[in-house]
């Protein structure tokens, strides 16, 4: 079953970020805050992400669907979001796909 998280691009460099709760935006999808079950919960999470000074960090937040893979890691359901989590599929040397764990450049 798909669950939802909130994503955006980071203001300073455009890097894809995810809302982790408590006004934090993180580069690693696995640290994203999962939407609790329930109707309208996604909208509530998005509203929470859009509070305070989010504008100084995150550009145009929106909800996206994720599922868990066999190892329990979060994976986007749409290929657009898959590409956003990784980087260009035609330049495997660029984007997040070359980052090490924890979202630092390898």
């Amino acid at each position: 079953m798909a669950e939802q998280i909130v994503t955006a691009n980071r203001l300073n460099d455009g890097i894809v970020v995810y809302f982790a709760g408590d006004a934090r935006w993180v580069a690693d999808i696995n640290e994203a805050r999962l939407c609790p079950a329930g109707k309208d919960a996604g909208e509530a999470l998005l509203a929470e992400a859009k509070t305070g000074s989010y504008q100084a960090t995150a550009v145009d937040p929106y909800l996206m669907d994720v599922v868990r893979d066999a190892e329990g890691r979060l994976e986007p359901t749409k290929y657009r979001e898959k590409i956003r989590t990784l980087g260009p599929s035609v330049r495997l040397d660029l984007g997040k796909q070359v980052w090490g764990p924890k979202g630092h450049a390898a």
Binding site: N9, G14, I15, V16, V59, D60, I83, G87
Partner: peptide
């Protein structure tokens, strides 16, 4: 946004 677009700056999937 309109100001950056006027200068040719777009936000793409992974970066500006």
């Amino acid at each position: 946004k309109p100001l950056r677009l006027m200068n040719g700056v777009y936000l793409q999937l992974h970066a500006y």
